[in-house]
Write a protein that binds this DNA or RNA. Structure first.
Lengths: 235, 235
DNA sequence: CCAACATGTTGCTATTGACAACATCAGTCC
DNA sequence: GGACTGATGTTGTCAATAGCAACATGTTGG
């Protein structure tokens, strides 16, 4: 079933290039088929259940065929993480766009979208957060990650310019909010703590937490005329 | 070498129970030796490099011996995670004690200690944060984790009573701070972002971030009677 | 002393990752 | 048009591993 699904989907891709023959050549585009099936397997059974041979079976090729496209398992995971990261990045950027013009509201929306992504696409999130992957991250993944961090950094700086945490180093702000958002996403997407949070709406919880990171709009930042604290520097 | 170290260390343990015979019986206490060696391997080469057979070799027993003590690899990791979690919990509690009486300062210190633990004992931290482990968490680990969360929850509530975030659900506060601390610890202990944070002192960075989660002392919480400063005059 | 038990060993099978040699197909060059 | 080349996939193989079963050895208690 699943293999058919993917195969068919890819035969369409192939069809774009070679109209006539839909599936003549060996497989079509094995590479993408493997990535797609890998995402399915991870979503269903977790990363540890992933095997190159299993993927090959599912997709209907011999056990060594994947080696042509992915040197080893890590390379496949790395590629999948890359794909997921691009979606993730687009997802977060999109959330910012939809939030309107207020930089603080945009930043808040980005934070919430991080968690929503983790809950919506757990396979991708689990993949590019997996220790094995980030340990053996290839060139492209590092680059994607850095670009994403820079996007967040700019968004943080803009939120700051709109009144959020005016006295803090933007890089620290970025690190803080990224860590909080990612940490929350991790906490809510894997089982940990599900006991204590049982019965809570994840979306609501996520929103409450993110609102502690950055307010939902600029007019809720501490403003010049607000009560403000300044009793010593935060080292 | 390493095996000798562990063997000797454990023969001491054994000696406590049976004074005379230090190492007569098959190994001594294989279980703890395996756990210790596992911690070493993880620290050196990461979790994915861990194999039961490799551990058995290192410790000097046959390949099937570990099975008597750990049904499978996950069981060993689970036990190791449990051990690490106890240390972690004690470490954080200890940090709170050393921070004195101010509940806010205590909570802040706990947050910093989470990150310090991750940087000091990366093997333990990586183990009980590893997806495989938390996915297949056994009874004891879940219980340890829940107890820890309740300790943090109480500490959060006490910090709140001392003036921190008076209007927020304590459970949300706990989730927020845990996620932020754990997320930061993850970010700093694995390589991710090391590029952007290059050249920064991890301890300082951690402190700055945690100070955004909870102020370093109760008198720095936003309070009606605090010194009020117009933002324009700051900085 | 013997029986039950815990602990460790040896041997086996199945799965997996990784590699090498070979086969097939497409496009190109002469 | 036919051989060359490169990309893709197949078959065969090897080493490492997990997991199981049968057996051996040391320990303990009746």
């Amino acid at each position: 079933m699943l293999l058919l699904t993917t195969s068919v989907r890819h035969s369409i891709h192939v069809g774009i290039d070679n109209m006539e023959k839909t599936m003549t050549y060996h497989h079509g585009n094995l590479k993408q088929a493997l990535l797609d099936r890998a995402a399915e397997v991870i979503a269903e059974q977790g990363i540890e259940a992933l095997s190159l041979r299993g993927l090959a079976r599912d997709v209907g090729v011999s056990h060594a065929a994947p080696a042509r496209h992915f040197r080893d398992k890590k390379a496949l995971l790395s590629a999948l993480a890359n794909e997921g990261y691009l979606r993730f990045s687009a997802y977060v950027t999109d959330a910012a766009e939809k939030a309107g013009a207020d930089p603080v509201a945009r930043y808040n929306a980005m934070g919430r979208s991080v968690i929503r992504f983790a809950l919506t696409y757990p396979a991708y999130f689990a993949t590019f957060n997996h220790p094995d992957v980030s340990q053996a991250a290839d060139e492209g993944l590092l680059k994607s990650h850095k670009e994403y961090m820079e996007i967040v950094l700019m968004a943080a700086a803009q939120a700051q310019a709109a009144g959020w945490q005016p006295d803090i180093d933007p890089l620290v702000l970025m690190a803080f909010s990224s860590a909080a958002a990612t940490g929350t996403a991790n906490m809510l997407s894997n089982g940990r703590g599900s006991d204590i949070f049982k019965g809570r709406d994840m979306e609501v919880l996520a929103e409450q937490i993110i609102n502690l990171v950055v307010p939902p709009s600029a007019d809720q930042c501490a403003q010049p005329n607000d009560i403000k604290v300044r009793q010593g520097e935060n080292a």
